[in-house]
Design a protein around this nucleic acid. Structure first.
Lengths: 179, 179
DNA sequence: CTTCCTCGTGTCCCTAGGTACATGTCCTGT
DNA sequence: ACAGGACATGTACCTAGGGACACGAGGAAG
């Protein structure tokens, strides 16, 4: 159901085509909620049938821009305010960490360094966005303020994971003193 | 594919039944990789066919304990060492944050407080595990050391999210000074 | 002795996610 | 003139996830 509300949420900002939404999903929402174009086009069809969105305009190359309806706006708002938050976090790197003891020290060292670098790079990337937003590069609309909040989450979570990988590498190299 | 390797990883620690594995998944791996029993039993069947696990013993009430084979152990090790890490993180609370601007201030305040409490409680829960492990309550086997590393990730990520929710609430109440 | 809970295995089916395939258009640079 | 890339929409199909349904056995407490 989250894809549905993700699309409605994006359309609440203004009309957009399936192609636009696909790009926004991969650029913006990608890391927290991946969605490929086949799913998006299919869901747009269903949303239209349900009257939550409607075609706003037709453009070149068969482009169809959709607009959110009153019902659609009400539906996202209800979801945000009333639907229970799903806190499950599916994170393969953490699943793997349960099985680190099956790796050789060299493999593990390698792995942790690469993971640390990956997470640190992601943290920096979000940090850059955050700074651009704080300089006002994207304006001060409510939407960009929400975006800023989301970006902050990215910075903090990726920094936490980078710190964790570093700590794990340290804990591996310097094992706790045995009594 | 991760469920498959999750099961193999758990079986690498010793024989277990589908029921055991279901409980370990929901107690231990649950927050990072949920799996329900129907999927687990089905995957155990496939793993047996592929010769990666075999039946270790039969118990009361039709209980079947499985044991990992040499091939199975090799398969997890290969996965850990060679398979590309999937970094996608599917996190509904962060998806929602992109759409905070659609909520009323009261709804958002409420939501953020509840989220902050949830994440803080999770962080405390993992902190408790971590402390118990550091006191040596679960021994010092390689498996528990890996578990300790995984738990540390839980503590750090949930603390980061709790801090984020608190920051968001603060940023909401005290908006940045406009130039 | 019976009731109830936990243990224990499994099927069915619907929805969601993801890859591959298919097709056509407009614009830009050479 | 034409080649290549970005724009744009869609179908088909396979796998993964998750809830509902189904059934039965063993053990503990009353």
């Amino acid at each position: 159901m989250s894809l549905r509300y993700g699309l409605l949420g994006l359309l609440a900002e203004g009309p957009a085509s399936g192609y636009d939404l696909t790009r926004r999903f991969e650029e913006v929402l990608g890391p927290v909620w991946p969605a490929q174009h086949p799913k998006i086009y299919a869901e747009l069809g269903r949303l239209t049938t349900d009257g939550l969105i409607e075609v706003d305009s037709y453009g070149p190359r068969g482009r169809k821009a959709y607009r959110i309806t009153e019902d659609g706006l009400a539906a996202v708002r209800t979801w945000l305010a009333e639907a229970e938050v799903d806190h499950t976090m599916r994170l393969e790197p953490l699943l793997r960490s349960f099985f680190f003891w099956l790796m050789t020290p060299e493999q593990l060292g390698d792995h942790l360094v690469r993971e640390q670098e990956f997470f640190a790079a992601m943290a920096r990337r979000y940090q850059t966005y955050a700074e651009a937003k704080d300089r006002g590069e994207y304006g001060h609309s409510p939407q960009t303020q929400s975006m800023r909040v989301a970006v902050e989450a990215g910075v903090r979570v990726y920094e936490a994971l980078a710190g964790w990988a570093e700590w794990a590498e340290w804990a591996r190299t310097v094992p706790p003193a045995k009594p």
